[in-house]
Structure formats: structure tokens, C-alpha cells
């Protein structure tokens, strides 16, 4: 099977030749090209070359040309702060006061060079790999984007204190999110990762999420003209499994703080699971640690398909060395082939 066949079979709740592996490395491409992270993201060609090199090295079953989360805030007039050894951060909030929310407009994709570079990277990768390898697109959910637009503290005060303005902000963010997601699909992305960390029960109580972010997700996902996978960025979400199923998501990213076996039961065959290797601990894993963790995850969630092995955050930290990622790849080759007859 090629990676596309492998992933699609797993997503269809059947067993492919082996468990698909998503090594969601982004910044590692810069290291491979000998560029700073800032320089790397300054040209679509860098990301294309970086992703192709990483795919060759790690034999990941996808390409992940995501730039950085803050690029979406650039579209709203925000700045990005680059650091040498980690993901770029959003700068000062762009929505500082109530009047900013009343005035904010849906940005046009063509006005944001960062988003255009993202689309160009997807187009170039699609031209190179065709339908053999899935290309992941990504958006920040309308509900979670204000963490960067407003700052987390201000957003929580807003969420609890100003429900009347919430709908206005969500309408703007949703229009942007849907346009951005569909543009990526048109450029050649196979599916869209819908990053919604604020949906996680680590950050919000379920009852509050159901009144807010879940309502937004229910309305947003059907407007995206392709497959969408919800990711909670390391946060917990097991008690939301039924709520996520109702959105039509095709997969959910699982936290390292939760049990993949519990998720497997909760998901049934309604959506696939992605996860849940601990990206922070991974930094200091030995080859034996990597093998143990890969076996654990596959044993918990691999049976019957519906599972893609990946890290739990959706992005491998810069500090994780190649040796660990190669050990993960080797462990999947050793233990990921179906049928999983080694599993008790």
C-alpha cells in the first residue's frame, strides 16, 4: 500500500498493511535545510523541500506543510514572534477592547502573505506527490483562535462575561476559518486538522463548551468541503467523544494524559484516533523507550484499524532528536504490521 491507501483504509475503520504513522514534524525541516526557523517559513519552497526531506527520512504517511498557528493572526493584523528553538508565537493581541470586536472584519486570504505561502506549499507538494501521500491542511477553530487574537486571560474574561459579543466574534472567525480551510483543500490538501484546544476539558468544563465552542464546531465543520479532524493540542477530551462524533469529524487527536484504549471504546467506529505519543518526554527517549511507547499505543488502539500513530500535540518539538523519530519509525515497522498477532 502507498501512504494514501494505508491512511484511507485505516480511516475507513479497516486494517491496512500496517498502522499509519504521522510524524508531525514541522520545524525539523528548517534544521535539515540549515535555515533558521524564521528563514524557513519565509518561502513556500523551503517548506516544500523540508517536508519532502522529512518524509524521506522518517517515512511518515503524510506531508504536514503547516506553517505556524500565529500565521492566522497575521491575517487579522497581528505580528509573529520567531524564536530560534521553538514554534513562532503570536505577538501582542489584535483585539484589545470591546470596540475592536465590534469592528473586526473577515480578512481576505489574498491580503495575507503568510497564508498565501501556505497555499503555495500545498500546491507544490500536491504537484510532486499527487494522490500517493496525504497532505494535511490545518486551521485554528473559530472558538480557539481568540486565545491568540485577544490573549488567553482576556478571552476567558470575555467568554464568561460578554456572551452577547461572543456570537459576533464567532461569525467573523467562522467565515475566515471556512474560507481558509476550503482554500487549502482546493490547493490540494487531503484533509483539514481543526485545532480546537479550548474545547478540551483540560481548559473548559464540558457544559460550558457545549454552550459555546461545540455549537461553533457543529456549524463550522459541515461548511468545510472535505474531511476534518479535531485536535485538542494535548488537552483531554474523552468525555466529549459523543459530542465530537456529532460534528462529523473523521478523527480526533488524543492526549498523552488519556488512555487510547478508553478512547477506542468511546469512539466506536464513528471516527478514527490520532495519537498519543508524549512529545515532551520524547525529547529524552532512548530507542527502547520509543519501541515501548509505540507498542503500547498500537496495542491500545490499533486493532481493527481506525488508528494513526502520532504525537499527542500535533507538532513534534524542535528539541526531539532525529534518533528518536527514527526509532519510532523502526518500531512501527517492527510492531505495526497487521494482523497484530503479537498482541495478547
Amino acid at each position: 500500500m502507498n501512504p494514501m491507501q494505508r491512511v484511507m483504509t485505516a480511516m475507513g475503520q479497516a486494517e491496512p498493511d500496517r498502522v499509519p504513522l504521522f510524524i508531525l514534524a514541522t520545524m525539523h525541516g528548517a534544521r535539515d535545510l540549515g535555515l533558521s526557523i524564521k528563514d524557513y517559513y519565509s518561502r513556500a519552497e523551503h517548506v516544500v523541500e523540508g517536508q519532502l526531506r522529512l518524509r524521506e527520512k522518517y517515512r511518515s504517511d503524510c506531508l504536514n506543510p503547516a506553517f505556524y498557528a500565529a500565521v492566522e493572526v497575521e491575517a487579522f493584523g497581528g505580528e509573529t514572534i520567531f524564536i530560534e528553538d521553538g514554534p513562532p508565537n503570536a505577538g501582542a493581541p489584535v483585539l484589545r477592547q470591546d470596540a475592536d470586536i465590534d469592528r473586526v472584519k473577515v480578512p481576505r486570504l489574498e491580503d495575507c502573505p503568510g497564508l498565501q505561502r501556505g497555499l503555495e506549499a500545498i500546491r507544490q507538494l500536491k504537484a510532486q506527490v499527487g494522490d500517493d501521500i496525504p497532505i494535511l491542511g490545518s486551521v485554528i477553530s473559530p472558538f480557539s483562535l481568540p486565545i491568540m487574537q485577544m490573549g488567553f486571560e482576556h478571552y476567558l474574561d470575555f467568554l464568561y462575561g460578554q456572551p452577547e459579543r461572543f456570537d459576533r466574534l464567532m461569525a467573523v472567525n467562522q467565515a475566515f476559518c471556512v474560507t481558509w480551510a476550503n482554500a487549502q483543500l482546493e490547493a490540494g490538501a487531503t484533509a483539514i486538522g481543526y485545532a480546537d484546544p479550548l474545547a478540551s476539558t483540560t481548559l473548559l468544563p464540558r457544559a460550558f463548551y457545549l454552550k459555546t465552542g461545540h455549537r461553533v464546531a457543529l456549524d463550522t465543520l459541515p461548511r468545510i468541503r472535505g474531511s476534518v479532524a479535531i485536535h485538542l493540542g494535548s488537552g483531554r477530551g474523552l468525555s466529549l467523544a459523543d459530542d465530537f462524533a456529532a460534528t462529523g469529524t473523521v478523527a480526533v487527536g488524543v492526549s498523552a494524559q488519556e488512555d487510547l484504549g478508553h478512547w477506542k471504546l468511546a469512539a466506536g467506529k464513528r471516527f478514527a484516533l490520532l495519537g498519543n505519543l508524549n512529545g515532551v518526554e520524547m525529547r529524552r527517549w532512548s530507542a527502547e523507550d520509543a519501541e515501548r511507547e509505540v507498542k503500547r499505543a498500537i496495542a491500545k488502539a490499533g486493532q481493527g484499524g481506525g488508528f494513526i500513530l502520532a504525537d499527542n500535540h500535533g507538532e513534534i518539538p524542535w528539541q526531539v532528536p532525529d534518533e528518536v523519530l527514527l526509532a519510532i519509525r523502526d518500531a512501527v515497522e517492527r510492531w505495526g504490521h497487521y494482523p497484530l498477532d503479537w498482541k495478547e
Binding site: 476539558t201 481548559l203 473548559l204 468544563p205 460550558f208
Partner: peptide, 11 residues
């Protein structure tokens, strides 16, 4: 223990 969310701790 994962029984309350960060927003509740904050508020």
C-alpha cells in the same frame, strides 16, 4: 485530578 478545567481554576 482532571475534575475541573483550567478556566474554573482561573475564574
Amino acid at each position: 485530578a482532571g475534575k475541573v478545567a483550567l478556566s474554573q481554576v482561573y475564574m
